[in-house]
C-alpha cells in the first residue's frame, strides 16, 4: 500500500477510510510526512460542525455521543467521533473503552470513530486533536463530536476549539456540580444533566441552572446556554439536545460569532504549534551548547532567576538567528 502524503490525501478525498485512519496515526505519532497531507487538505476542511463534549468520567458522554450520532444518521448526516482519554504518565499506555458505549454505531461506514490517548505534552495533544478534526472535516463528515474527560486544563484546551461545547454532568453528586468550576462554566454553550432517571435530577438541574445564570461573562451575552436533562441510556432528550446544537449553530452564523470563533481557533492553533517549535529549539540549544548549560548552572547556583534566565536564553536564540521551523 502506498503511504505517501499525496497518495493518502487523494484517497482521503475519495472517502477511503483506511487513508483517513492512517493519516490520523501519522499525526498522532508526530510523523513529519503527515505535514504535507495536512497542508493539502486544509483547503478542503471548514465545513463540519465541530461539537465538543466534556464532563467527568462516567457522566454518560460516550452514551450520549452514540445517541447524538444515531440521531444525525437518521437525518442522513455523516458523523466523525474523536474520543480522547488519558494516557498513563507512568507507562505511556492507555485503555480506551469509549467504543463499548457506542456499539449501535459500529458497522455504519458513515460513522468514523477514533479513540486517542492523550499521550505526551499539553500543547502536543491539542495540536494533534486539531489535526485529527481537520482530517475528518476534509474527509467529509458533517458533524465531528470530540469527547474528552473534563478533568483539567488540557481538556478545556481541546473543547475550546469546538464550535459548540456541551458540558455533561449527572445527578447525585453535589461535588459533581462543584467540580464544574469557573473554567468549564465559561466554555459551555449547552449544559446537560444526564441520567435524569436517577434520584436528585431535578435538584441538580436547578443548581446548575442557577450556576449558569450567574456565571461570569466577559461580554454582554447574546446566547443563553440552555440547561437540559437527558436519559442517554434510553435516548430521552436527545432530539432536544440536537435541536439546541442546531440552534447554537444558527446563532453562531447569524451573530457573526462563527467567524470570530474560526479566527480565534486558527490563531490559537498556529500559536500552539509555534510554541512547540520554539520550546523544542530552545531545548536543543540548552542541551548542545555550553552557554545554554551555563544559564541553567547559574540558575541552580541561585545567581540567575528564571525570568532573567528566559530573557538571556531568548537573547542567545536571537544571536544564533535560530530558525525554529
Amino acid at each position: 500500500m502506498s503511504d505517501t502524503a499525496e497518495e493518502l490525501f487523494r484517497r482521503l478525498l475519495e472517502k477511503d477510510r483506511r487513508a483517513a485512519a492512517r493519516l490520523i496515526t501519522m499525526v498522532e505519532n508526530g510523523q513529519p510526512e503527515a505535514r504535507e497531507a495536512l497542508r493539502l487538505l486544509h483547503r478542503h476542511s471548514g465545513r463540519a460542525h465541530i461539537v465538543g463534549l466534556t464532563g467527568s468520567p462516567g457522566s454518560g458522554k460516550s452514551t450520549l455521543t452514540c445517541r447524538l450520532a444515531q440521531h444525525y444518521r437518521s437525518l442522513d448526516r455523516s458523523v466523525g467521533i474523536i474520543c480522547v482519554d488519558p494516557t498513563s504518565p507512568f507507562t505511556g499506555g492507555a485503555l480506551l473503552g469509549d467504543r463499548v458505549r457506542m456499539q449501535e454505531l459500529s458497522g455504519d461506514p458513515e460513522v468514523f470513530i477514533r479513540s486517542m490517548g492523550s499521550r505526551g505534552a499539553l500543547g502536543g495533544l491539542s495540536v494533534a486533536t486539531n489535526d485529527v478534526i481537520n482530517i475528518l472535516d476534509a474527509f467529509g463528515k458533517d458533524y465531528i463530536i470530540v469527547e474528552t474527560v473534563g478533568a483539567g486544563q488540557v481538556e478545556i484546551e481541546i473543547v475550546k476549539f469546538a464550535q459548540t461545547c456541551i458540558v455533561v454532568t449527572m445527578p447525585g453528586a453535589g461535588d459533581e456540580i462543584q467540580a464544574i468550576k469557573a473554567g468549564i462554566l465559561e466554555i459551555g454553550d449547552i449544559f446537560v444533566v444526564n441520567k435524569a432517571d436517577r434520584e436528585g435530577a431535578l435538584r441538580t438541574l436547578s443548581d446548575l441552572e442557577m450556576m449558569v445564570e450567574t456565571r461570569p461573562v466577559r461580554e454582554e451575552p447574546t446566547w443563553t446556554p440552555p440547561v437540559m436533562s437527558c436519559i442517554a441510556l434510553e435516548g430521552t432528550g436527545v432530539e432536544e439536545l440536537a435541536g439546541a446544537i442546531d440552534d447554537h449553530w444558527v446563532y453562531l452564523r447569524q451573530s457573526g460569532m462563527l467567524e470570530q470563533k474560526i479566527i480565534g481557533r486558527m490563531r490559537a492553533e498556529m500559536l500552539e504549534i509555534l510554541n512547540l517549535k520554539v520550546t523544542r529549539a530552545a531545548g536543543a540549544v540548552i542541551d548542545s551548547e555550553g552557554r545554554g548549560q551555563d544559564i541553567i548552572k547559574r540558575m541552580v547556583g541561585r545567581e540567575l532567576d528564571p525570568h532573567s534566565a528566559a530573557d538571556e536564553m531568548a537573547g542567545l536564540l536571537a544571536e544564533r538567528e535560530l530558525d525554529v521551523r
Partner: peptide, 17 residues
Amino acid sequence: QALRDAGMEVIYSGLKQ
C-alpha cells in the same frame, strides 16, 4: 490492563461484536 501497563494503547470493543 497488562498491555496498557506495557505502554500500549488498547482499544476495547465491548461484548457481542
